[in-house]
Computed example of a mutant assay.
Amino acid sequence: MATQKVSRSITVNAPAERIFAILTNPRRHAEIDGSAMVSGCLHGPETLTAGSEFRMDMSMLGVPYRMTNRVVEYEKNRRIAWRHIGPHRWRWQLEPVDDHTTRVTETFDYSPAGPFAILYQLAGYPARNARAIEQTLLRLKALAEAE
């Protein structure tokens, strides 16, 4: 069985705390989104923590919609993951290399979808997610290094 996760990593010349502050602010998600699907934060706290819910304005193929997400994994300055009504998760892991450098890994984990995961594969989502993650990481890197 194929791994039902898509992950990419990048090294960012910024401390984990600065990167985590960007990731946990849902109002900044549109700035880093490499999929061109996130339009902005409609509702949510200033800073995400365990169990936080936030609603995003989204668009796919020019069709607007809204998505509510909930933080399901949280370790301050190290890991955050959220999911919407579907079972898959978007996870961010931060590994400090030193005080000023962090290895950031973003993962789209669709393994909780069980037998329905084959639908993601058939629809080509793993490849699309990989391209979006690569662009997101580049945008996050530029933003974190500029602050």
Rank of each mutant, 00 (worst) to 15 (best):
residue 3 T to H: 06
residue 4 Q to V: 08
residue 8 R to G: 01
residue 9 S to W: 05
residue 9 S to E: 12
residue 10 I to G: 07
residue 10 I to D: 08
residue 11 T to W: 12
residue 11 T to V: 15
residue 13 N to Y: 13
residue 13 N to G: 11
residue 15 P to I: 02
residue 17 E to I: 06
residue 17 E to Q: 14
residue 17 E to V: 13
residue 18 R to N: 14
residue 19 I to W: 13
residue 20 F to P: 03
residue 21 A to D: 04
residue 25 N to L: 07
residue 26 P to T: 05
residue 26 P to L: 07
residue 26 P to W: 04
residue 28 R to W: 00
residue 31 E to P: 03
residue 31 E to T: 05
residue 32 I to G: 00
residue 32 I to W: 14
residue 32 I to T: 12
residue 34 G to F: 11
residue 35 S to H: 13
residue 35 S to A: 15
residue 36 A to M: 04
residue 37 M to L: 11
residue 37 M to E: 15
residue 39 S to L: 13
residue 39 S to R: 09
residue 40 G to W: 01
residue 41 C to S: 00
residue 43 H to A: 10
residue 47 T to S: 09
residue 54 F to C: 04
residue 57 D to A: 07
residue 58 M to I: 00
residue 59 S to H: 06
residue 60 M to T: 12
residue 61 L to H: 07
residue 61 L to I: 00
residue 65 Y to G: 05
residue 67 M to Y: 01
residue 67 M to G: 00
residue 71 V to M: 11
residue 71 V to A: 08
residue 72 V to Y: 05
residue 73 E to S: 10
residue 73 E to P: 04
residue 73 E to I: 04
residue 73 E to H: 13
residue 79 R to N: 03
residue 79 R to A: 06
residue 79 R to Y: 02
residue 79 R to P: 02
residue 84 H to T: 03
residue 84 H to D: 13
residue 84 H to Y: 04
residue 85 I to Y: 04
residue 85 I to G: 12
residue 86 G to E: 09
residue 87 P to F: 10
residue 88 H to V: 03
residue 88 H to R: 11
residue 89 R to K: 15
residue 91 R to H: 08
residue 92 W to V: 14
residue 93 Q to H: 10
residue 93 Q to D: 15
residue 95 E to L: 13
residue 99 D to G: 02
residue 99 D to Q: 09
residue 102 T to Y: 11
residue 103 R to K: 15
residue 105 T to R: 10
residue 108 F to P: 08
residue 110 Y to K: 13
residue 111 S to V: 09
residue 111 S to C: 09
residue 112 P to M: 06
residue 112 P to N: 08
residue 113 A to G: 06
residue 113 A to P: 09
residue 114 G to M: 07
residue 115 P to W: 15
residue 116 F to G: 01
residue 119 L to Y: 10
residue 122 L to G: 07
residue 122 L to T: 08
residue 123 A to P: 02
residue 123 A to V: 00
residue 123 A to F: 04
residue 123 A to Y: 00
residue 125 Y to H: 14
residue 125 Y to G: 02
residue 126 P to L: 03
residue 126 P to R: 01
residue 129 N to T: 11
residue 130 A to C: 03
residue 132 A to D: 10
residue 132 A to W: 11
residue 132 A to L: 10
residue 135 Q to R: 15
residue 136 T to F: 03
residue 138 L to A: 14
residue 138 L to V: 10
residue 141 K to I: 09
residue 142 A to R: 14
residue 143 L to C: 05
residue 144 A to G: 01
residue 145 E to D: 06
residue 146 A to Q: 13
residue 147 E to N: 02
